[in-house]
Every structure is written in C-alpha cells, then in structure tokens.
C-alpha cells in the first residue's frame, strides 16, 4: 500500500509572458494578452503531494506543520505577492509560464526532508492546471 499526502496552498503573483528570443510581433502572436506590457496576475493554487509510510508513532506521512513551514519558506515567501519576471531570479531569463513555475516550485521542494516529494500540481486559474513529477515521472513510462 502506498500513501500520498496532498496539501493545497494559495499564492498570488503577477507575470508577463514575453520571450527575449522572439520579436515583438511574434511575442504578441504567441502570448496574446499575456504579453501586455505591464503584466497581469493570478491566484495560483499549489498542490504539493508527498509520499511515504505513515510513522507508527504519529500516524503521519509528513508532519503538516513541518511541510507548511517548508513550503512557506521555499515557495510562498519567494513568489507570493511578487512580480515573477522582476522579483524572482529564476525568471530573469526563463519565461514565467505556469509550466516553468510548476517546475521551479517542484525543484525547490525536492529537498523537503520529511517525506518524498511525489508531485506538484499548479492551478493558474480554476480552469488551467499543470503537474510536474520530475524527470523520472513513473507515469511517463
């Protein structure tokens, strides 16, 4: 039997989709209104899934307080109420699409010492979501 524990967090941030590798017109065509010059924002929902056996003494896969503190430090403090393009070093070069944000969050959470990180699922809006489970995603094979 395998247990996955999932916790949902919210963060609000703005971004602008614009690639330095594309010309003005091509950026506009590729990203549409997401290319508007001053950016726009979303209420993102981050779903963090970790796995492992339930500790017999506590009944827990991961201590929720520890997971919350780790996510707050590694993710929420970095991204919440920020302009991703300007305020986050990782997006100085990379386009802050929600795909790239999902991968960035996953990479930041991999070091969680309390359990194995399984997956990050990121909702950009209630209609769009992205999942990343690392390069060795078991589902991809």
């Amino acid at each position: 039997m395998t247990l996955h524990l999932t916790r949902r967090y919210s963060l609000s941030a703005s971004h602008r989709l614009h690639s330095p590798r594309l010309g003005e017109e091509e950026n506009q065509r590729t990203y549409g209104k997401c290319n508007n010059p001053y950016g726009h924002g979303h209420n993102y929902v981050v779903e963090v899934s970790v796995s492992g056996p339930a500790d017999p003494a506590t009944g827990m896969v991961a201590h929720l307080g520890e997971l919350d503190a780790f996510v707050a430090r590694e993710v929420l403090e970095t991204f919440d109420h920020k302009y991703l393009n300007e305020d986050v070093a990782a997006f100085c070069e990379r386009v802050p699409t929600t795909e790239n944000l999902c991968i960035e969050i996953y990479n930041r959470l991999r070091a969680f010492p309390g359990a194995r990180l399984e997956r990050v699922r990121l909702e950009e809006t209630s209609l769009n979501s992205f999942e990343y489970a690392g390069e060795s995603d078991r589902r991809a094979s």
Partner: peptide, 15 residues
Amino acid sequence: TPDLFVDCYGDGDAR
C-alpha cells in the same frame, strides 16, 4: 478538508 487529502494505492499502482 478541501486543502488536505490522502491518496491510498495498492502496491505498484500509484500514478
């Protein structure tokens, strides 16, 4: 709660 859930799978069936 809506912000906390657990998935349980049989051996080898997690995806």
